[in-house]
Design a protein around this nucleic acid. Structure first.
Lengths: 341, 341
DNA sequence: CTGAAAGCGCTTACAG
DNA sequence: CTGAAAGCGCTTACAG
């Protein structure tokens, strides 16, 4: 038998107070007597009263919840970012609702409908691969629902963004290979319709140019999703190409690991014959042998920052939503795959 | 300027109908004329009407949302399980709210308070490491809020559960090593206060016993959290112990990888000198060299199953919540770390 | 310091 | 086929 929920009405009846007084007492309203407040709270605890936030949400026109749209949560980068979001949200009393677009635009659009229906106070998004156009997000601007994009953002859409400087990180990674003595540096690139992967390629090129190394297009291999298997294919092509690279900068860790394995199996020594740098600092990168030099993309911190920014915007009373872009500092983590041995 | 939200009242005013009629039309109520329904929907679309689910939740006493408590979402097992939950929930129109206990009991309890306040329709939980006692979940039974536990469950608490048969999986893994010819099989064990890790150890022992191999306690190493680093320590101890193992069954993949690396570095060949089996089938296990034989713990399927079970219980009209335990089949994925070469 | 009353946006039993 | 009315549980401006 389900005992039905205790409401403030029940408390009011029991204590011969009005619901107004009960409500105020539960919120420590200063106009209510200390004694009354104490007794109301005591009874509430005894009876196991819990406020119904659905009712108070409706009344206050605020849900204290934020919606998060990610391509997939089983990708480590996103689960780490969500972990950061959840941590900050939890501390501020916000609730986090997760939606996966699975990189489908249709699904992303349908999620925005759900979010609008669910009256979230703010939204954090990492765009799906198919999304070229953000018009399904414009209505949130009209509804004064703040948006924060992270990592995969749109240049054309004005909103707050939390990103890393992919160009600078790639530049740093490539320069590290150059300073180490590499002169024929290859690149395994991600999907060029995403600006982050384009920026990584440009950073790579810029480092070469700065150090007077020729940009050789035959040393650039393209993938669509930077998978381990695609990495194997690319590495094999590089292995059998006419210019044999002595260094590879890969747009993520999986393809970097493929490269290490393909070249090692072919009899090359990493890093002595060919040095490899990845991107992301996945857990696997410090376990693989040799351990992988990589760019730490600060996923957790990105999530935290996005959540802090969003909550600040939600709570800014004047509701003047100023777009702000925060660039998180990346770090080159040097490990054995580039360490001179 | 925020245009304020369109409500059914606005639609009613515009169309000279009562809000009742509008509400019914929007829900395809059969008593409303086809024409009226069509026109109401058309106007709703034109004006960009979205229902306010907070209001309808309050009225219907149903939130169509489920709460999920996991220890941490940045652990692949959990992010995969959540992915499965979210997929099923999305299809059924439920919303998934995520909470991380971070293995803290205090936080787990506080999350149950939030869930009660937020009026979720059901809850899916994977218990935190500190949780020995589930009394903070009992009130949901009284409130008729269905609960489904997955993976880390409590034997003492009656509720629906989705688990794998850890004993059987460990048995299968160990027997695989035996059939392959190993006779001195070590075990790297997880925290013994969790029943799943205890079961893995028992399954290991049972397989040895069945095949008339002695259970040698000096071949069992204990960890607290099955980390890579702990795995390295354990493997080193096994390496220098008086009985040199020729096979290791590890309670997860990280410690299995540590073992492979420690033994390989010491000059042993995996699998010829020592075969290794892990547990979980993490993405890394098919990338590491040699690739790792492991138990696939079906995290995604566990999540899907938990969500299906929960939603069925939520929607069961009679509200007789019968506890049900579903055991998901695990699979031994054989790879190079045990393959005779 | 406390209460009566209105209302958040929606749903639905009742009446016609 | 349609409407008036009550009410979900809470908050809060107004009045005293």
């Amino acid at each position: 038998m389900a005992t039905s929920r205790i409401t403030i009405k029940d408390l009011a009846k029991r204590m011969n107070f009005s619901v107004s007084t009960i409500s105020r007492a539960l919120h420590d309203h200063p106009s209510i007597g200390k004694k009354t407040t104490r007794e109301v709270k005591k009874l509430a605890k005894e009876l196991g009263y819990f406020p119904n936030s659905v009712a108070s949400n409706l009344r206050r026109n605020k849900t204290t919840s934020i919606g998060v749209i990610v391509p997939r949560i089983d990708i480590h980068f996103h689960s780490l970012a969500i972990s950061g979001i959840e941590e900050v949200a939890y501390k501020s009393g916000y609730t986090v609702t997760i939606y996966q677009s699975r990189d489908s635009l249709e699904r992303e659009v349908s999620i925005t409908n759900i979010l609008q229906t669910n009256m979230v106070d703010g939204i954090i998004i990492c765009l799906g691969l198919e999304t070229k156009d953000c018009k399904h997000f414009t209505r949130f601007r009209e509804l004064s629902v703040p948006l924060v994009f992270y990592d995969r953002v749109s240049d054309d859409f004005e909103a707050s963004k939390v990103i890393i400087d992919d160009f600078e990180a790639a530049f740093k990674a490539t320069e590290h290979l150059i300073l180490r003595g590499c002169t024929k540096i290859a690149h395994i690139a991600g999907c060029q319709s995403m600006n982050i992967f384009k920026a990584r390629k440009e950073g790579y090129k810029a480092a070469l140019t700065k150090h007077n190394l020729e940009v050789d297009d035959s040393l650039i291999e393209y993938t669509t999703e930077l998978s381990y298997d695609e990495g194997v294919e690319c590495a094999k092509k590089l292995l059998s190409g006419k210019v044999r690279p002595d260094g590879i900068f890969c747009a993520n860790d999986y393809t970097a690991i493929s490269s290490i394995q393909v070249f090692t199996k072919a009899g090359f020594h990493v890093p002595n014959d060919i040095a490899v740098v990845g991107f992301s600092n996945y857990p696997i990168s410090k376990i693989i042998e040799p351990t992988l030099t990589t760019i730490d993309d600060q996923a957790f911190e990105m999530g935290q920052t996005a959540a802090k920014l969003l909550i600040r915007q939600i709570e800014e009373k004047d509701h003047v939503i100023a777009s702000e872009t925060i660039v998180i500092k990346t770090e080159l983590v040097i490990r054995d795959s580039t360490r001179t041995s």
